[in-house]
Simulated scan of single mutants.
Amino acid sequence: MTDDTQPMEGTPMIAPSSTDHPLHDAAVEACRSVFDPEIPVNIFDLGLIYTIDINDENDVRVVMTLTAPGCPVAGEMPGWVQEAIMGVAGVRTVDVELVWEPPWGMDMMSDEARLELGFM
């Protein structure tokens, strides 16, 4: 008997993004226009955007997290991301899912974000 609640060994905790989709780069740039008000770095470079999945109909599904569950903008930030990506020409719909697993860690930040925040 197997425990179906545990991910299979080797299964990534973060689903891959649709990096080969023509709208992917524009969606990333849209995410880079959104900032956590308490941190002077965009949410993409902070590592808060886990997955940008875009289907053939240009429906975008974003899986994201926050630096902490008690983040003061927890209720607002998914809407900011949705609004930013809806501004990308060609996007049909945007669904933003907020998750807490895997938990965000400073190791998820880009080198640019670490440099900006003085961690490098």
Rank of each mutant, 00 (worst) to 15 (best):
E38T: 02
E38C: 10
E38D: 13
I39D: 00
I39Q: 00
I39G: 00
I39C: 00
P40N: 05
P40I: 00
P40C: 04
V41Q: 10
V41W: 06
N42R: 03
N42K: 04
N42A: 01
N42L: 03
I43R: 06
I43Q: 07
I43W: 07
I43C: 06
I43P: 04
F44M: 09
F44E: 11
F44L: 05
F44H: 14
F44W: 13
D45T: 05
D45C: 07
D45V: 04
D45W: 14
L46W: 09
L46F: 11
G47A: 09
G47P: 11
L48G: 01
L48R: 01
L48D: 02
L48F: 06
L48K: 02
I49C: 08
I49M: 15
I49F: 09
Y50G: 01
Y50H: 11
Y50V: 04
T51W: 05
T51P: 07
T51M: 07
I52E: 01
I52V: 13
D53E: 13
D53Q: 14
I54T: 12
I54F: 15
I54Y: 12
I54A: 11
I54H: 10
N55I: 05
N55Q: 08
D56G: 15
D56R: 15
E57H: 14
E57C: 08
N58E: 10
N58P: 12
N58H: 14
N58F: 08
D59P: 03
D59G: 04
D59I: 01
V60C: 07
V60L: 06
V60W: 04
R61V: 15
R61Y: 15
R61L: 13
R61F: 11
V62E: 03
V62N: 02
V62Q: 04
V63T: 15
V63A: 13
V63E: 14
V63Q: 14
M64T: 06
M64R: 07
T65I: 09
T65N: 08
T65W: 11
L66Q: 06
L66S: 05
L66E: 01
L66H: 03
L66K: 04
L66R: 04
T67D: 14
T67I: 12
T67W: 11
T67L: 14
T67Q: 12
A68L: 05
A68H: 11
A68P: 02
A68G: 04
P69R: 12
P69T: 10
P69K: 12
G70S: 13
C71S: 07
C71F: 08
P72Y: 06
P72V: 07
P72H: 07
V73D: 04
V73P: 01
V73H: 06
V73C: 09
V73K: 04
V73T: 15
A74Q: 10
A74M: 14
A74I: 10
A74F: 06
A74H: 11
A74K: 10
G75D: 14
G75L: 11
G75K: 12
E76S: 13
E76G: 08
M77K: 03
M77W: 02
P78Y: 02
P78M: 02
G79L: 11
G79K: 15
G79Q: 15
G79D: 12
W80A: 14
W80G: 01
W80Y: 11
W80K: 13
V81G: 02
Q82L: 05
Q82T: 12
